[in-house]
Each structure stands twice: as structure tokens, then as C-alpha cells.
Simulated assay, not measured.
Amino acid sequence: MTSVRLRGLLPALAQRRTRVLPAAAAPGGTVAEAVGVRVERAGRAVLDDVGIEVRAGEVLALVGPNGAGKSTLLAALAADLVPSAGEVRIEGRPAAAWTPGELALRRAVLPQDAALSFPFAVGDVVRMGRAPWAGTEREDEDEAAVAGAMAATEVEAFAGRPFSALSGGERARVALARVLAQRTGLLLLDEPTAALDLRHQELVLRVCRERAAAGDAVVVVLHDLGLAAAHADRVAVLHDGRIAAEGPPSEVFGEELLSRVYRQPVEVFPHPRTGVPLVVPKRAHATTRRTANRTIRHS
């Protein structure tokens, strides 16, 4: 590199080094919020007048049936989607007031699909999460952040394998490791357990709880109401683009609400040991089914 080009880069590097880095939020403080958010697609309101707060030290689960607006709300909170009306704020500022680089220091996003066009090694994919910190004083944390994220998601064993050679569940864990390595105070995770087995579903939600306990704000889209009830501090039930109910799972998960929202009769009862709400569909009793089967066989 010529000395002229080097001199030209030095001011830019110095500016990155002096960038104002995000400070940790106070416990319970609002890290992000949606205020009267409306999102329209093809002339239809996918979200309509939605308001929600995301707080430091909490896991907030977004639940609801397919098409209720969960992923759209997550994208709006991430400032990846501009609302048709209303406003999203991150750290008290309108999301549009932050540059992409500033946002990347403050929130990390896990989309539903983890796809890469090139055969990057797993370790390199996780290291991508550190890109926003390049040129800042926290760049020195890169190796520790990557190693810690890979250990938390149990992907160290295939660090050198191509990402494209992994199973769907392995890719999901590597994608989560990248998000964790980013070390932001706000994590936005879209269906992180969808491709995972039972053990790794629990691992992912346990990691979410650990991050919240450390002071981060975590928003996670879930379809499994049992996981939401067991691991979330608050749940927001979305229905037809609106929030039908929001609060602790023990207060929100009621039979009438869930049966209406999901259009499927359910039963809700406390776990006999933990008291956590268990949500199960109402099904025909086994005796009824056996009687029906006998009737069919003899007809």
C-alpha cells in the first residue's frame, strides 16, 4: 500500500476508534420499543397499531399463529423494516436516526433462514459477527467472543467444516453463535428453535435466559408455547396483526384466549412440579377413539 493511500485511511481508522460505543442499559430499562406501528403489504395491514416495549434483563417471546405478524414485528424492532406508520425506537432514538453501523453495535438479528452462497468455514461464519466492532476498542475481544459463542452453542467440534456441509440444525446453531459473538445488548431471534432437536431447543432457550440474566434484552419468535411459558419473562400474543395480550405467561396463557387466537380448543394447566403453564390441544379421549375405530371396522 502506498504512503498516500495509507495517509488517507488513517483519519477514517481514527474516527472508527473514537466512535461512541453503546453503554449497558439499566436493569428493566427500555432498550427498544414499537409505538403505534403499522406495516402494510399489498394493501393489507400485516401489523396494525402495535405497541410493545423491549426491556433489559428480560426474554420477550412473540407467539401466535402463522401469519399473525410475529416475524414482521421482529423485523420492525430490528429496524430492518420501515413501518408505514408509527415509530420504532432503539435506545430512545428513532431507529431511522441510527446508521447501519451504529445499529450493528446495538442489536443482533437472527433471521429464520441461515443461508450462505460461499463455502465459508464454520469458524469464519461465527467470526463475521465481530465485523461491526472492527476499528473500535472492543476489537480486542474478538477471539474471546467467538470462542465463547461457539462453546455456548456447542459448535466447536465442526469449526473447520464448511457451513454448507452442515445439517439444518447445525446451521441454526452456527447462525446463533454468530449473533452471540456480536455481543450486543439487544438480541432479536426469529424462530431459533425451529430446526432443532429437544436437547438443543433447551440449550438455545437456556442461552437466551443467560443473556437476559447478564442484562441483555432478548426478543424471540416461538411457535412452541411450552418453551415460551418455561423461558420467557413476558409473552406477546399476536393475532391478525395486533397484540391480543401481553404479560407474564402465567397471566396471559388462558384457555379462552389461546383457543380463540389459534382457532383450536386447548387446555392449560400448571406443571405439577414447576407450576409453569402447559398448553395442550383438546383431543378426543382414547376410549372414544377406540370406539370410533371399532365402529369403522365393523361398518
Results as ranks from 00 to 15, higher is better:
Trp98Phe: 14
Trp98Gln: 14
Trp98Asn: 10
Thr99Gln: 12
Thr99Asp: 00
Thr99Ile: 08
Pro100Ser: 05
Pro100Tyr: 02
Pro100Gln: 11
Pro100Lys: 10
Pro100Phe: 05
Gly101Gln: 09
Ala104Tyr: 08
Arg106Glu: 00
Arg106Ala: 01
Arg107Ala: 12
Ala108Asp: 00
Ala108Thr: 08
Leu110His: 09
Leu110Trp: 01
Leu110Ile: 06
Pro111Val: 15
Gln112Ser: 12
Gln112Leu: 03
Gln112Val: 07
Ala114Leu: 15
Ala114Phe: 13
Ala115Met: 14
Ala115Asn: 08
Leu116Ser: 02
Leu116Val: 15
Leu116Cys: 04
Ser117Asp: 15
Phe118Lys: 12
Phe118Gly: 06
Phe118Asn: 09
Ala121His: 01
Gly123Met: 02
Gly123Phe: 01
Gly123Lys: 02
Asp124Phe: 07
Val125Pro: 01
Val125Trp: 00
Arg127Asn: 04
Arg127Met: 10
Gly129Pro: 08
Gly129Lys: 10
Arg130His: 02
Arg130Phe: 00
Arg130Gly: 00
Arg130Ser: 00
Ala131Gln: 13
Ala131Thr: 15
Pro132Cys: 12
Ala134Asn: 14
Gly135Lys: 05
Glu137Val: 12
Glu137Thr: 14
Glu137Ile: 00
Asp140Phe: 04
Asp140Gln: 13
Glu141Pro: 01
Glu141Val: 10
Glu143Asp: 14
Glu143Ser: 14
Ala144Glu: 15
Ala145Arg: 14
Val146Met: 00
Ala147Ile: 05
Gly148Ala: 11
Gly148Val: 11
Ala149Ile: 09
Ala149Met: 04
Ala149Asp: 03
Ala149Thr: 08
Ala151Lys: 15
Ala152Trp: 04
Ala152Asp: 10
Thr153Ala: 06
Thr153Phe: 07
Thr153Ile: 01
Val155Met: 04
Val155Leu: 08
Val155Ser: 04
Glu156Pro: 06
Gly160Asn: 15
Arg161Ser: 13
Arg161Asp: 10
Pro162Val: 15
Pro162Arg: 12
Phe163His: 06
Ser164Gln: 13
Ala165Thr: 13
Ala165Trp: 05
Leu166Pro: 03
Leu166Cys: 06
Ser167Glu: 10
Ser167Lys: 01
Ser167His: 08
Ser167Met: 02
Gly168Trp: 09
Gly168Ser: 08
Gly169His: 02
Gly169Ala: 07
Glu170Ser: 01
Arg171Cys: 03
Arg171Pro: 00
Ala172Asn: 01
Arg173Asn: 07
Val174Pro: 03
Val174Asn: 06
Ala175Tyr: 01
Ala177Val: 07
Arg178Thr: 05
Arg178Phe: 03
Val179Phe: 11
Val179Trp: 10
Leu180Ser: 08
Leu180His: 03
Leu180Phe: 12
Leu180Val: 09
Ala181His: 05
Ala181Gly: 05
Gln182Gly: 12
Gln182Ala: 12
Gln182Glu: 07
Arg183Gly: 01
Thr184Asp: 09
Thr184His: 09
Gly185Phe: 05
Gly185Leu: 09
Leu186Pro: 01
Leu187Phe: 11
Leu187Arg: 00
Leu189Gln: 01
Leu189Met: 09
Asp190Phe: 02
Glu191His: 11
Glu191Lys: 13
Pro192Leu: 05
